[in-house]
Computed example of a mutant assay.
Amino acid sequence: MLTKNNLEIAAQEELAPGIYRIVLHGEFDYAAVRPGCFVMLQLPDEAYQLRRPLAIAASNETQKTIALIYRVVGDGTRLLSKLTPGMLLSILGPLGNGFSLGADNSAEEVLLVGGGTGLPPLMMLAQALNEKGYAVTTAIGFRTASMAFGEKEFEHNGKLLLATDDGSKGFKGNVGELLAKQSVKKYAKVYACGPAGLLQMVQKRFAETETEIYLSLESRMACGVGACEGCVVSTKDGIFNKRVCLEGPVFDGREVIL
């Protein structure tokens, strides 16, 4: 159920240079949260009229908390990074269609692929798949070791493959180069979130396999509820203007045109 709530900042920390994790506490429709869902966050400054879409990285109904991870890219997110525990933030959500998890007690092997701020929804997804019994492998990439985050979460829920462009940690190269050296036909499902180039790589890498492909798209959003149609994407079924905020952000990777 879509709700608008004022949640209290419980904690905020910098995970890596310019990457922050903020934990919000309060009443929210936690039961409706699925991996891949997001919220629209209102900054506490009248200069910022539009809400900001942020993926949910973790949700705890018992503790009444959600965690969001974001990168500082401009004045708005810089303001967000300066907010302190005890302050209130207006949240609209949960929004969007999340990842398809499949059956319980599955022993299938699945692969998660992400980079940068595409990692937050995969953190929640890795935990959910692991709890269902899937054998989870996660492949993530960063420019350099100092920018890496989320390793403990992914290692706790399966196997981690890490790449850095400069080789300062893990495999030297990008995630695409890392996967090129892996056998991918064994995976029943692949889930990916990140920039368009990464998603296109996943489409191409798994094109000749029977693997189910699920891609979570990143997009600028004005409303988050499908009204403005400012976050549209095309699909192979000929239906244009599917909205990332409403029909997505997760799409069938064999159908969406990037």
Rank of each mutant, 00 (worst) to 15 (best):
V39D: 09
E153K: 10
M221L: 13
G93Y: 07
G141W: 09
G248P: 08
E155W: 01
L92N: 04
V175E: 01
A207V: 09
S81K: 11
L80M: 09
A32C: 04
M201F: 14
L95K: 07
L199H: 09
L246P: 00
S59K: 11
P120A: 07
I19L: 09
A10F: 13
A180E: 12
A128M: 10
L129P: 11
E109I: 00
A58F: 14
P120M: 08
K159Q: 15
L161I: 05
K169E: 09
V202R: 04
K152Y: 07
A58I: 04
K181V: 03
A227Y: 12
E210C: 05
A32L: 04
E212N: 10
E212H: 12
E229Q: 15
A126S: 15
N60T: 11
P94W: 06
R21C: 08
V250D: 12
D237Q: 06
T164N: 07
N157T: 13
Y48G: 08
F240S: 13
L122K: 00
C231I: 10
G115Q: 12
Q182G: 01
N105V: 03
K132T: 05
S81A: 14
F240G: 15
P120D: 02
A148T: 14
V225F: 02
E131N: 07
R51D: 07
L162E: 00
S219R: 15
L162F: 03
G141N: 10
E247L: 08
A188M: 02
A57Y: 02
T62L: 13
S90R: 10
S219P: 00
C37L: 08
A55R: 01
G230Y: 03
K189Q: 08
V190N: 08
L24F: 14
R220H: 05
L161P: 09
E27L: 09
T138W: 06
G176T: 10
Q42S: 14
L50A: 14
R254P: 01
T84A: 15
C245L: 11
N6F: 12
I9Y: 11
G176K: 05
E8F: 04
G116I: 02
G170M: 02
P44L: 04
Q49G: 11
E108L: 05
L111K: 03
G118C: 04
R143N: 13
L111R: 02
Y30T: 11
K181Y: 00
P249M: 08
R21M: 07
L24I: 13
A207L: 12
